[in-house]
């Protein structure tokens, strides 16, 4: 199965300028294996890797769109999207002017930022309690 996927994703050398596209896809593949075997998550900062114009789009196209897409609104919008490979997420953070301030590939069960946070739950509980008093 993995071999079939790898073959399908192989990027022809002529289609990539920096030669970083295929290694990055392999890093994702290794990340998925680690997640499955050891429950260890991996995060890749796409803005920390030199990519030629169009190469990021190429990676995103290869990863495709999966079953889950979430929109978050905290300090500007964020988009959290599972790719067609379960456990591989594309997380894009924007500022309040819709400029990208962070773009990450997360290999995990679910990105941490999607979970309700204890501090926010505590504050919400206090607000609801006050409202019902």
């Amino acid at each position: 199965m993995m071999d079939a996927v790898s073959t399908e994703l192989r990027v022809a050398a002529g289609e990539q300028l920096t030669l970083n596209v295929e290694p990055l896809l392999h890093e994702i593949r290794h990340g998925l294996a680690r997640l499955l075997e050891n429950a260890v998550a991996t995060t890749i900062d796409l803005r920390g890797i030199p990519l030629a114009p169009g190469e990021e789009a190429r990676i995103i196209k290869v990863l495709g769109t999966g079953e889950v897409q979430a929109h978050m609104s905290a300090l500007g919008p964020s988009e959290i999207m599972e790719t067609r490979f379960p456990g591989v997420w594309l997380v894009t953070h924007y500022n309040s002017e819709n400029e990208v301030i962070g773009k990450f590939i997360e290999v995990c069960d679910m990105p941490q930022i999607l979970k309700a946070q204890a501090e926010d739950i505590r504050e919400g509980l206090a607000q609801l309690t006050a409202q019902l008093a």
Partner: peptide
């Protein structure tokens, strides 16, 4: 700013400082 917002702030700050997401 919520905790979620704070975590987003931290993720962007790590990226800003060229530090690994870990």
């Amino acid at each position: 700013v919520t905790r979620r917002g704070f975590l987003k702030f931290c993720a962007a700050t790590a990226s800003l400082m060229a530090l690994p997401p870990a």
